[in-house]
């Protein structure tokens, strides 16, 4: 009897120890697929941490936050990776995140002061079209042209929301008028990025809302230089993707270790050719060949999380009213 008990106690102890060494990271789906950064990141971190890193994919960035809110403080998540600055104000308000306590040197076109969330990559939104075709030079130019585009719905997609913020930041009170002029350029509005990009590749539109880095995918992975991003005079709105430590984590030290690891070369060098975004810290070897061909916007536009959250509802209503006409 005594032996049985001690065996059980021993088993419990090992399982508790195993539990202590598991770092659970909630992230968006495409991060964990075999084409995403997940596999490389997992292998590199497990080499040094003496732990088991487990990614759990949960839809897209917005789904990630609502998943965490559903689970509350009882969540298994130790780290949430993949929110963007449109979501961080709401994320901070939930009180579910802890401060990261780091002040790293970042290669971002904007200053970074967020106490709860650390960026792991970033990109500029841009319209991606075919090389050699007519390319507008500004949002206004696009709105005045006959060019046909596909965009994503700001109510269900992060790039869609990015465009909403782009127009609002660049045009302020004139945003509504710009949307009205854009209305006849918009072939359709899709629920997510994949559908829009698919329609563009099928030839349904001259351009699609995506990122300045999208042509790099076609160039590097498919050796196809026929896709280009349009540089716009107003500047380009940014998407900064961040990670944060969950306050209720049972492995706070491991979580801190992961956040620090996130900004090292082992993590960052995986980003450009798996997530097709710019790394938050450029690795020592620089960016992969092909990235030098991408357009470099002169002005980076980005609202602070608080401004973004305060602007969103009114901007959404403007968008809806202008396009519903």
């Amino acid at each position: 009897m005594k032996t049985t008990l001690s065996v059980i106690a021993g088993l419990l102890a090992t399982s508790a120890m195993a539990q202590e060494n598991v770092l659970t990271v909630y992230t968006y789906d495409s991060f964990v697929t075999e084409w995403g950064p997940g596999p490389a990141v997992e292998a590199a971190f497990e080499e040094t941490c003496g732990c088991d890193l487990q990614f759990e994919g949960a839809g897209d960035g917005a789904a990630l936050l609502s998943r965490l809110q559903l689970e509350g403080p009882r969540t298994d998540a130790d780290i949430v990776l993949g929110l963007d600055t449109n979501l961080t104000a709401a994320a901070r308000e939930t009180g579910l995140f802890a401060e990261h306590g780091l002040s790293p040197d970042l290669d971002l076109p904007v200053e970074w002061t967020d106490s709860h969330f650390l960026p792991f990559d970033w990109g500029y939104f841009a319209f991606v079209g075919n090389a050699g075709a007519e390319a507008p030079t500004s949002l206004r130019d696009l709105a005045d042209s006959d060019i046909q585009i596909v965009i994503q719905d700001p109510r269900s997609s992060t790039p869609g929301l990015g465009l909403l913020m782009w127009v609002k930041t660049a045009y302020g009170d004139e945003a509504s008028a710009l949307w009205e002029d854009l209305a006849d350029n918009i072939v359709t509005v899709t629920p997510g990025w994949s559908e829009a990009y698919g329609l563009f590749l099928e030839g349904e539109a001259d351009a699609v809302l995506s990122y300045t880095t999208s042509p790099a995918y076609h160039l590097i992975a498919e050796e196809d230089d026929s896709k280009v991003a349009w540089a716009f005079e107003e500047g380009h709105y940014m998407q900064v993707e961040v990670a944060g430590k969950v306050a209720s984590t049972d492995v706070p030290d491991l979580a801190d270790q992961f956040l620090a690891f996130m900004l090292t070369d082992a993590f960052q060098s995986a980003i450009p050719t798996t997530n097709w975004m710019y790394p938050a810290v450029v690795p020592e070897d620089g960016l992969p060949d092909g990235f030098e061909t991408l357009i470099q916007p002169e002005t980076a536009l980005l609202l602070s999380p608080e401004e973004a959250s305060a602007t969103r509802d009114a901007a959404l209503e403007e968008w809806r009213a202008a396009l519903a006409r």
Binding site: G59, S66, D153, S156, T188, V189, P191
Partner: peptide
């Protein structure tokens, strides 16, 4: 998804999209 992809924009907003927005984006 049908209404959203082929509907051409917010004119074709269905209840289902409103639900999606409420759950995913606004919690």
């Amino acid at each position: 998804a049908v209404a959203l992809i082929l509907g051409g924009g917010p004119r074709a907003t269905t209840l289902e999209l409103a639900i999606y927005q409420a759950v995913r984006f606004e919690f």
